[in-house]
Amino acid sequence: MAITVTVVDDHPAILSGVRAWYAEAATPIEVIAAGTTADVAWTPPGDQADVVVLDLNVGAGDAPYQRAVRRLVDADRKVIVYTMQDSEDVALTCLDLGVSAFLTKAEGREHLVAATISAVENRPYLPPTLAGAIAADLGPSQPRLSDREREVLTQWFQCESKQLVADRMNITPRTVDTYLDRVRVKYANVGRPAPTKAALLARAIQDGLVGLDDL
């Protein structure tokens, strides 16, 4: 069965290009709705797309993208931000809000397709450009993680579920949760909360805890 996508973008050329990229992908991906505002994503529950690809130039007023992202994420939608903005602050804000991935439009077809598949599989995705920018900004306050916490963290980034991590490491899913909770608490204690999987990956790359080769 094909992955379904709603694309929110105000540029016709981008919409056409994204449709073509998905149509050419080895994994079946179908754009079932497209429009210039996030309202297009609000279809009846049975008709909602698996993934929403969202440009940040939507809405009006102060920080309109934050409202659009928060509304979609709060409704348990998988959101990929696809934007011309390349600000690390904007990227981390979106990741903290709970998006599945943040891509700049310079990333192109390969990364948008890969990010879409990763979102459906519940895996975070950071393209090289953003990963490099995040890694270059070494935060002043890094949590001190144990070797076991790092191992669980890396395994979780590689897996679709905590059950798979548990199977790989011969531990229980509850133990996986315990380790991940400890990591989140440590990040919160140094003033760098990471409430989502994608946000935690961004923090881990920032701090050199994992690299792209680990994923």
Score class of each variant (00 low, 15 high):
Met1His: 04
Arg144Tyr: 12
Glu88Arg: 12
Ser146Ile: 07
Val58Gln: 05
Asp181Ala: 11
Val40Lys: 07
Glu110Cys: 04
Val73Gly: 13
Gly208Lys: 09
Leu56Glu: 04
Tyr82Gly: 05
Asp207Glu: 14
Asp86Arg: 15
Val81Lys: 12
Val81Phe: 10
Lys105Met: 07
Gln85Lys: 11
Val7Cys: 12
Gly98Thr: 01
Arg77Ser: 12
Asp86Lys: 15
Arg67Pro: 01
Ile14Ser: 13
Pro173Leu: 02
Ser146Thr: 15
Arg70Ser: 15
Glu160Pro: 00
Ala119Phe: 08
Met1Ile: 06
Thr172Met: 03
Gly108Pro: 14
Tyr125Asn: 04
Asp86Ser: 15
Ala188Trp: 01
Asp76Trp: 08
Gln142Tyr: 09
Ala202Cys: 08
Gly191Arg: 04
Ala49Lys: 06
Tyr125Cys: 02
Asp214Lys: 09
Thr37Cys: 08
Gly208Asp: 11
Gln206Thr: 08
Ala136Tyr: 09
Gln142Trp: 10
Asp96Leu: 03
Arg71Phe: 06
Gln48Met: 12
Ala135Ile: 02
Ala34Thr: 00
Asn170Pro: 00
Asp147Cys: 00
Leu15Ala: 07
Asp214His: 12
Asn122Cys: 01
Gln163Phe: 08
Val18Lys: 04
Ile32Thr: 15
Ala194Thr: 14
Asp89Cys: 02
Leu164Thr: 04
Pro127Glu: 10
Asn170Glu: 03
Pro128Arg: 06
Thr104Ile: 10
Arg67Leu: 12
Ala166Gly: 00
Gly139Phe: 06
Leu54His: 07
